[in-house]
Amino acid sequence: MASQTHILCFVNNKGGSGKSTTCANIGYSLSSLGYKVLLIDGDMQLNLSLAYFEEEFVLETAKSEKNLYAAIKYQKDLSDYILSTRYPNIDMILSSTLMSSIEYELFTKWQREYILKNGLKKIVERNEYDYILIDSPPTLGGWVMNILCASHYMITPVEASPWGLFGLANLFDFLSDIKYVTPDLQMLGVCITKADTRKNYLKQTITALEELKHTYVFETYIKVDSSIEWSQENGRPVMDYKKSSRSAIEYLSLTKEVVSRVNQQQKH
């Protein structure tokens, strides 16, 4: 049994920044380090679901009543929506394409920022999981607010590009505006993804990020690696698909940093 459940979300409204890939692979790496993990796919694109399950199963679940959309719509205890993956220490709540209309569902609800948080209450109370990881869509609205309100920590994957950094600044402006709704949420760190070491621009981005005063940038960055795409093609985390691949090694190292950052924050 876990001593305490840590809830981490992966948020960046810039699309394609590596949220789902990072969530899926940190999830797997955490389990390889002996932690019990619950993954929650909060995005209608179903990418986190696809990282672990066959396409047919993902689409079938998306149409059924056994997904996150149904749970949020009817404000249910999320315990009843957990499915087992092929890995004993990793469970998942899958998403639905209907998540596209979740904003409308939330609109009329009382305390609408806290529907996800309330749905997770029983799971957290049971201390069944060491980590709950939530993948989010590339938006900033009421649903992402739910994800932020339900989480203890936030990780922001970012691509080393000018618009990537511009988007990151917009995200921080948003976070600053909503701080009063999520006072306890901590930014665990920014991680650079899809880094192309052949490009000089990467160096410039890293130099620019060094100027961040109060925001942690993970030392490990994830480089461009075709094993990521191959692993996704095969519906498996990269560490299971090809343990010796560069990205598998990098994601394990990033995960160790995440664990040590979380433990550090706990002490404060």
Binding site: W163, L165, L168, A169, F172, A208, E211, L212, K213, T215
Partner: peptide, 10 residues
């Protein structure tokens, strides 16, 4: 853009 963005984040 990157330097301006970093300033905005800080």
């Amino acid at each position: 853009i990157s330097s301006k963005s970093i300033n905005r984040i800080n």
